[in-house]
């Protein structure tokens, strides 16, 4: 695990020294700022009685806005992690240093998760802005951010896996986007399947829409934590196996 730190530092460096991270963060903040403006504008013009939800709920769940940015931003964040190193051959140098597969995978994952958190951090200002003119339930906000973190952790881990199974960044991007989209569509199945069927149970279990709705309402359900925890840990485990498998290719 001693090699975790240098690889983590280098990954963050590589991410922020290239334009990619800045482009992604700019696009992210621009889109989120637009969403925030539209939502606040909407709630202000409707008046308090017009809706049964708060701007925080709408911002973090119950609208398509959150899923749109995740769908657009997660795949380009993770695509390069392994695919680029395998394409350029630097993976050979990395793996011939005295490092373990676990530390390489965890360092890369931690770096991209850190970037994800850094991306979301400025949105806390939105809540500060809200508080100046209204009331913010900080408990609900914390639970919403927990939800965002968990969903991101799961998706980034899936993206990391996709990057490890191909040498093409583009293919990694497409596959990650498909998995993220697939999970979302499967979740939407919750609303079209009949209650009580197995399909309905499966769909509602993976329904990010319903999950984020809960989190954004301040409901921290341990089932969700377990689900996204396994979404993060399982792909990491498979990625480590994939990294070990290159040795035998």
């Amino acid at each position: 695990m001693r090699s975790f730190w240098p690889i983590y530092k280098r990954e963050l460096f590589a991410f922020f020294v290239t334009p990619l991270a800045w482009v992604l963060i700019t696009v992210f903040l621009f889109i989120q700022g637009m969403h925030f403006f539209l939502l606040v504008d909407h709630f202000a013009s409707m008046g308090p009685a017009a809706s049964d939800q708060t701007p925080i709920q709408a911002f973090f769940g119950n609208t398509v806005l959150l899923y749109l940015v995740l769908f657009l931003l997660i795949p380009p964040m993770t695509m390069r992690l392994f695919a680029e190193e395998r394409r350029s051959g630097t993976i050979e140098l990395l793996m011939t240093a005295p490092v373990s597969s676990w530390s390489v995978v965890l360092a890369k994952y931690a770096s991209v998760l850190t970037t994800y958190v850094a991306m979301w951090a400025p949105t806390a200002f939105y809540l500060v802005i809200l508080q100046r003119s209204g009331e913010v339930d900080w408990g609900v906000a914390a639970s919403a951010y927990l939800g965002v973190f968990l969903v991101g952790a799961g998706y980034l881990s899936l993206g990391l896996l996709m990057s490890a199974v191909t040498t093409s960044q583009f293919l990694a991007l497409i596959m990650t986007a498909l998995v993220v989209l697939g999970l979302f569509i499967l979740g939407v199945g919750e609303f079209v399947t009949r209650e009580g069927t197995l399909m309905h149970a499966v769909c509602s279990h993976v329904s990010i829409w319903a999950h984020m709705n809960d989190f954004a309402s301040g409901i921290v359900d341990t089932r969700r934590i377990v689900f996204y925890g396994s979404c993060a840990i399982l792909p990491l485990f498979v990625t480590v196996r994939a990294v070990d498998a290159w040795r035998w290719g």
Partner: peptide, 22 residues
């Protein structure tokens, strides 16, 4: 093929490798 990280400076890169090699 001597693969290297193009975005790093030579001294930076070697310092990274030295740290990686403990």
């Amino acid at each position: 093929a001597v693969p290297l990280y193009p975005e790093m400076r030579v001294a930076e890169y070697l310092a990274f490798r030295a740290e990686l090699k403990r």
